[in-house]
Amino acid sequence: MTPTTTQPAAVSTAVRAPVPRARFRDLLAAEWIKLWSLRSYAWAFGASALVVIGINISAAVADYKNWPTYNEGIRALFVPIWAMRDAFTIGASMVLILATGSIGALMMVGEYSTGQIRTTFAAVPARRSVVAAKMAVVTAVMVVYGTVVAGTSFGVTQAVLSGRDIGLSLDHPGAFRAVVASALLAPVCALIGMGLGALIRHTATTIVTYTGILLLLPFLLNDRHRWSSAILHALPHSAWERLVQVGDPFESAPYPATLSGSWIVYAAWPLAAAVIAMTAVRRRDL
């Protein structure tokens, strides 16, 4: 009888190396690629910029042509009030608000609608870091976008009006503030759109809600009553209107907005949107 020998089975004790955590700059690079991988975003930036600048230039050209027909009362008020309004018209601001807010919302909602957000969070479980990277990239892009649009609008419109000697220079009191406020309106609105997108997670509902709050609500309020003016002045569009106005007698209004209060509104809305987005992606399931 042949004796059998029992050999102990070899046990694999190989230890898997821990997967390194994604660095924040890697998340920024990923979100940058996501933003520009779709041509629709580039088209949205380009088309909206042309529309906004075109509306403002059209207003300046109209005033340039109609200047000989204006009476003395209009001419007395034109510089600086109307000249600045030509650079930053209400219609152009509404287009800018809608375009930038929609782009910001789609940057957040788009991944939820396609299901790509599951892959993203599986690769990077730190959800708040992903959202922070998204917001950082969108903020940087929107600052550049807003600066180009606001700077071009001011420069071209005032160059047109200078043909009648009614243009403003950048060093005119309040002019630089107006350009900065118009430039920052883009990232402010984009971040608000992202916050709503993270909370609602549905494209149509997000854009409708965003439009209702930022574009429709201001038309339902006035500054004749304290409660109404308080809500009105707390909205981004109303804050922008105060910041871009020069030479207007705001003190004559019953409850006028202040420059400091308008800047606070500019800071509070994006901060609130960031907090909402961070909380929503962490506490809610996909």
Score class of each variant (00 low, 15 high):
3 P>Q: 12
12 S>W: 04
12 S>D: 15
15 V>W: 06
18 P>W: 12
25 R>K: 00
28 L>A: 04
28 L>S: 02
29 A>Y: 02
30 A>P: 00
30 A>D: 03
31 E>W: 05
32 W>Y: 10
35 L>D: 02
37 S>Y: 07
40 S>I: 13
42 A>M: 12
45 F>H: 01
46 G>P: 03
47 A>G: 00
47 A>Y: 01
48 S>I: 11
50 L>N: 02
52 V>D: 10
55 I>D: 00
56 N>M: 08
56 N>H: 03
57 I>P: 00
61 V>T: 09
61 V>S: 06
64 Y>C: 01
64 Y>R: 14
66 N>M: 13
66 N>R: 11
68 P>C: 09
69 T>W: 02
71 N>M: 07
73 G>C: 00
75 R>K: 15
75 R>M: 12
75 R>S: 01
75 R>Q: 14
80 P>L: 14
80 P>Y: 09
84 M>R: 03
84 M>D: 01
85 R>S: 11
87 A>S: 15
88 F>M: 12
88 F>H: 06
90 I>Q: 12
90 I>H: 06
92 A>M: 10
92 A>I: 06
97 I>L: 14
98 L>A: 15
100 T>H: 04
104 G>S: 05
106 L>P: 00
110 G>S: 08
114 T>W: 10
116 Q>T: 12
118 R>S: 06
119 T>D: 11
119 T>N: 14
119 T>Y: 09
121 F>W: 12
123 A>M: 14
128 R>W: 10
128 R>D: 08
129 S>T: 06
129 S>Q: 13
132 A>L: 15
134 K>S: 10
135 M>E: 00
135 M>A: 06
137 V>N: 03
140 A>Q: 02
140 A>C: 05
141 V>G: 03
145 Y>A: 08
147 T>N: 07
147 T>D: 05
151 G>L: 13
151 G>C: 10
152 T>H: 01
152 T>K: 02
156 V>W: 08
158 Q>Y: 05
161 L>G: 01
171 D>Q: 09
174 G>E: 06
174 G>H: 04
175 A>T: 06
181 A>W: 05
183 A>S: 07
189 C>S: 11
194 M>S: 05
196 L>E: 04
200 I>R: 06
201 R>H: 11
201 R>N: 10
203 T>F: 01
205 T>A: 15
205 T>E: 03
205 T>R: 07
208 V>K: 01
211 T>N: 03
213 I>Y: 00
214 L>A: 14
214 L>P: 00
215 L>F: 11
216 L>S: 03
217 L>T: 09
219 F>E: 08
220 L>Y: 07
223 D>K: 05
234 A>C: 08
235 L>T: 03
235 L>Q: 07
236 P>R: 12
237 H>E: 14
237 H>M: 15
239 A>P: 02
244 V>H: 07
247 G>W: 10
248 D>S: 05
257 A>V: 09
257 A>M: 13
259 L>M: 08
260 S>V: 13
262 S>E: 12
265 V>K: 03
267 A>T: 00
269 W>N: 03
270 P>S: 11
275 V>D: 02
276 I>H: 02
279 T>L: 15
281 V>K: 02
281 V>S: 02
282 R>C: 01
283 R>M: 07
284 R>V: 01
286 L>I: 15
286 L>S: 04
